[in-house]
């Protein structure tokens, strides 16, 4: 991609972080850490990669996206709203009574959400089902699913991985947002996931790695994953939990906590400064 396109993606991702932070602040609850770590990945998928349009969000031939780590939806909602799946006015109502945007994704209420998710380990199985449906019907759509690294402690994730490779689901690309943290501490302390690449390879995946905040790298990995034939692909995305807000970065306590007014101002100003530097405006 050229530098203009890259700049554009950075601006969108920065805005997604701003909207996510605002929504979580308004709701006085939510999960900022993982929403910020995955924002660039969502941005790339919806703005550069996936064949899906807000005018026809249920097109049977569209590419599909399943956010298996459903709690990291605030920045996904922001990307979908900016893309036009629903109004930007929905974003500040996140998690409020009567809101379209639920605390975890609800495919029934939110245009653009392909699967309800939030209970960890379940989204990836649904993504496998979507990929299988594509194979049955000889359709050429692709299915993407973003999982958390902590989420990979769920046994169902590995049931799904076995299923994906057993059924040669090469139309499925799994992206694991490895921000290294989960609620109770680092993923290595709590669950012990490594060596993730070897585990995925032994489960029959073609494995790629990327810097989940570098759009060149994201493009390279996703393009390579798309070209894998005969087996599913997995991308290990190295990311920073809380990316973009200095006091949240790599801090375990920002997994599921909302900022107070003072913290919100600091975080918002940091993101606005980044947006300004990129030449973007809200």
């Amino acid at each position: 991609m050229n530098s203009n396109e890259k700049q554009e993606l950075r601006i969108i991702a920065c805005k997604a972080r701003l909207y996510a932070l605002e929504g979580i602040f308004n709701a006085k609850s939510g999960h900022p850490g993982g929403s910020l770590s995955a924002a660039d990945i969502y941005t790339y998928l919806y703005y550069k990669e996936m064949k899906v349009t807000p005018e026809n969000p249920n097109n049977p031939d569209r590419d599909r996206f399943v956010l298996s780590k459903g709690h990291c939806c605030p920045s996904l909602y922001a990307v979908l709203a900016m893309k036009g799946f629903f109004s930007l006015e929905e974003l500040p109502k996140l998690r409020k009574v009567g809101a379209m945007l639920q605390g975890h994704p609800d495919m029934k209420s939110t245009p653009g959400i392909d699967m309800s998710s939030g209970s960890l380990g379940q989204g990836i199985s649904a993504a496998c089902g979507m990929a299988l449906a594509g194979k049955i019907d000889n359709k050429d759509y692709r299915v993407y699913s973003v999982l958390g690294d902590g989420e990979c402690e769920e046994g169902q994730v590995w049931e799904a991985f076995m299923f994906a490779s057993h059924n040669n689901l090469d139309n499925l690309t799994v992206i694991i947002d490895c921000n290294g943290l989960q609620i109770d501490g680092t993923v290595e302390e709590v669950g012990g996931l490594e060596p993730l690449d070897k585990k995925l390879e032994s489960f029959g995946f073609e494995v790629f790695k990327m810097d989940g905040h570098d759009f060149d790298d994201i493009e390279k990995a996703i393009t390579a994953a798309k070209n894998v034939k005969g087996k599913p692909s997995a991308i290990i995305a190295k990311t920073i939990k809380g990316k973009g807000i200095s006091y949240m970065e790599n801090q375990v306590n920002w997994h599921g906590a909302a900022p107070n007014a003072e913290q919100y101002e600091i975080g918002r100003n940091e993101l606005l400064a980044q947006l300004n530097e990129l030449g973007g405006t809200l």
Partner: peptide, 28 residues
């Protein structure tokens, strides 16, 4: 045989796969 899928001894995944198939118009 083309419309039958053995998911192995993994019932949790099977239900999720069924959900994904249903979201694409299949009746699992």
């Amino acid at each position: 045989p083309d419309r039958f899928f053995d998911c192995g001894i993994a019932e949790g995944n099977m239900m999720g796969v069924a959900a994904g198939l249903a979201s694409c118009g299949k009746i699992p």
